[in-house]
Design a protein around this nucleic acid. Sequence first.
DNA 1: TATTAAACGATAATTATTATCGTTTGTCAA
DNA 2: TTGACAAACGATAATAATTATCGTTTAATA
Lengths: 144, 144
Amino acid sequence: MNAVESREFREVCKRAGLAVTHQRQVLFEVLKNMHGHPSPEEVYARIKRRIPSISLATVYKNIHLFLESGIFREVSLHHGSLRVETNSKPHHHLVCTACKAIFDIDANELGLAEKTGTLPGGFLAQRYAVDVLGLCAACQQKTV
Amino acid sequence: MNAVESREFREVCKRAGLAVTHQRQVLFEVLKNMHGHPSPEEVYARIKRRIPSISLATVYKNIHLFLESGIFREVSLHHGSLRVETNSKPHHHLVCTACKAIFDIDANELGLAEKTGTLPGGFLAQRYAVDVLGLCAACQQKTV
DNA sequence: TATTAAACGATAATTATTATCGTTTGTCAA
DNA sequence: TTGACAAACGATAATAATTATCGTTTAATA
């Protein structure tokens, strides 16, 4: 990491109220240089090559801090335990980023023009699952 | 459950190649009558009121069978372990329902008209996370 | 450079889920 | 109807992912 990147990282930490530690800095770099959607274990394996003594717990804690601070995002907004969809009508989800509540919205009410058929790359699109992220009415009140 | 519903359930099981058991039938009814996005534990609590001796393992096993057979869906397509998004550009996901692979696609390449601002119900929409479900090129070959 | 809060590493604990296994039940053919 | 056999069941052990705890180390800042 060069001087400019290092300064940037210090800025990022300052904004998030995080101390600048070696582990945190290397994790940041590693994540920036990974591709796709790595799991904490995969990140841990990678960062261990640079800091063999690092703990898996430190990786988890710092990934969470990065997510909370908006420095990185997670792939699935509602990962965690299995949930069954009981609404059989075509619908999408309104996900409140504050309270994590999920509301259903009818597909036609959201009115997206969903392209099915073959997409670039040869992917055959069959169905769209849309999460609209934002704030529910109740949480908008609270944050005012 | 009346005679018509019972016949329907038998049909559903026949199509899925599943035996018609009492536990399975009650689980089916309970799921049909629940709302939202219940977890297996919540379903278990509910079904226990009608079959106190039922095992949590049975609930899990049958929920999975229902999901595999397409009788119900699960809320998140890529639930399970935490994944970090390393692609900082606005993009969406192509999710292969066969091999579970996730490919990124640039938001503008997908070209959805995303309505932000306040939606019906007072939800403040800030960002869209779209999963396009279908089959990747490789899996289309296999299923031919 | 001394103080203090934050972060670290090791690891125990927890949670969600899956596997195992002996017993029971549903299916199907005779 | 019944008997054989596969499927499903309940109890619970095992596993995987994640989080909590706690004594030690390190960074912030006065």
